[in-house]
Simulated scan of single mutants.
Amino acid sequence: MNRQEVKYALTKAATLSKRLIKTAIQSSASDIHFIPQQEQVFIFLRCHGERQYQSTLSHQQYLMMLSYYKYIGKMDIGESRKPQQGVIYYEHNADTYSLRLSLLPTTPVESLAIRLLPQKQMQTLPHLFLFPFQLQQIQQWLQYRSGLLLLTGATGTGKSTLLYALLKTFMEQNKFQTITLEDPVEKQLDQIIQIQINERAGVTYDAGLKAALRHDPDIIMVGEIRDAKTAQFAFRAASTGHLVLSTLHANDGKGTIHRLVNMGITPLEIDHHLLAVASMKLLSLNDTGFGQRRAAIMELLEREQIHQVIADEPSCVTPSFQQLKRKAFAYGFTNYI
């Protein structure tokens, strides 16, 4: 194609993209999935945890959009054999959305997924919880000044949302020097130092944590503990008088303790420095009275329960996810157990 044809194709792709992103935002979608098939490309939106069919594109339209997203997301336009990631920003109704682009090499053409992250919308703690008694337990965590607080769960269970809400509440109630290490930075926060992890440039979680400790922090937020090295450094930071907040992939509260042990954290370190664990799942609420939204239920482990799990005591008592689901059903919050 000549320069004029390329310009026309990019303009057309930009128009298609804006229309699709606007639809996704109006549908309260968290993600857009492009699923290439032999004849066409299917587009799905993830709304309130459920993937919903949206529309289809021809291969020609999709390839045009891929080139557009690669270009504005600062990815390699000529690369189709390796995974790539990029970030673009979109303005809608006085809000800015960070769009995280993820490309995977698939047959017959690359697959694209887009995560939509509103930058100005910030969930408050009371809005996130289904049960008030769990909110009250979490609010008590705001009194801590050193140690490690962990939020755990599967992908898409709201760990990052709760992490940001906790940070915001900490900042409203106290004047703390707060530093975050994130990959990527999902929301821009006022009066907080946010470090973007960039492993290609040598800014790893480990290197970032070392640098953050020299910057006189009161609170350190680690976006995610992904490996043993980061876990060990987070515990060391918690042991030196800093309050550390982070997330970890684990199925439940007990599974969190076992995963830490598998990462090389000793039971003694866990017992001394892990203040609390909130293992999260999201429940879709009934439309009647609640609107179409989801709320968190949590298995909460605090110091006593953590000690009991480490000691493998059968007396560890905390409401399980199944018990919380039954309670939600009994109160009419959901239609299923």
Rank of each mutant, 00 (worst) to 15 (best):
I138E: 02
K187C: 06
T155F: 04
Q173I: 02
F170S: 01
W141G: 03
T157L: 13
L163N: 09
P126K: 07
T155R: 04
S146W: 12
A165G: 04
T157Q: 15
P132W: 09
T180W: 08
L181R: 07
Q140E: 14
G158A: 11
G147S: 00
T155P: 07
K175T: 15
A165K: 04
L142A: 02
F129V: 03
L130E: 14
A154W: 15
L130K: 09
L150A: 09
T169P: 00
T155W: 10
L151Q: 00
G158V: 04
M171N: 13
I138G: 00
L128A: 01
G147M: 02
G158W: 03
S146V: 00
N174H: 15
Y144E: 14
D183I: 03
L162E: 11
L150T: 02
Q139E: 15
F170A: 03
Q136H: 13
A165H: 01
H127R: 11
Q137C: 05
T152H: 05
T161R: 05
S146E: 09
E186Q: 09
K168R: 15
T178E: 09
T178L: 15
F129C: 01
P132H: 13
G158F: 13
L142V: 02
L167D: 10
E182Y: 02
M171G: 02
T178N: 11
F170M: 05
S146F: 13
T180C: 06
L151T: 02
Q134N: 10
T161S: 12
Y164V: 06
L150G: 08
E186Y: 12
L125C: 01
K175P: 11
N174M: 07
L166M: 14
K159W: 08
T155I: 01
A154N: 08
P126I: 01
P184M: 04
T178Q: 07
L130R: 09
Q134H: 07
K175V: 11
Q140L: 07
R145K: 13
Q139A: 03
L162N: 11
Q139Y: 07
A165E: 04
T178I: 15
Q134E: 10
Q177S: 14
K168G: 02
H127L: 02
F133P: 10
M171C: 03
L167M: 15
Q134S: 09
L167P: 08
H127P: 00
L130Y: 14
L166T: 01
E172A: 10
Q136C: 08
L125Y: 15
L181K: 06
G147E: 01
P132D: 13
G147I: 03
Q136W: 08
T178W: 03
L150K: 07
L162S: 14
T161V: 13
R145T: 12
T169H: 02
T161L: 05
K175S: 15
T169F: 05
E172G: 04
K168I: 09
L135P: 12
T178H: 11
L181C: 07
L150I: 13
L130M: 12
L125K: 04
Q137V: 07
Q143H: 14
N174C: 05
F170I: 02
A154I: 11
Q177I: 10
T180M: 08
T157Y: 14
Q136F: 11
R145S: 06
Q140I: 00
E172C: 01
T157I: 06
F131T: 00
L142H: 08
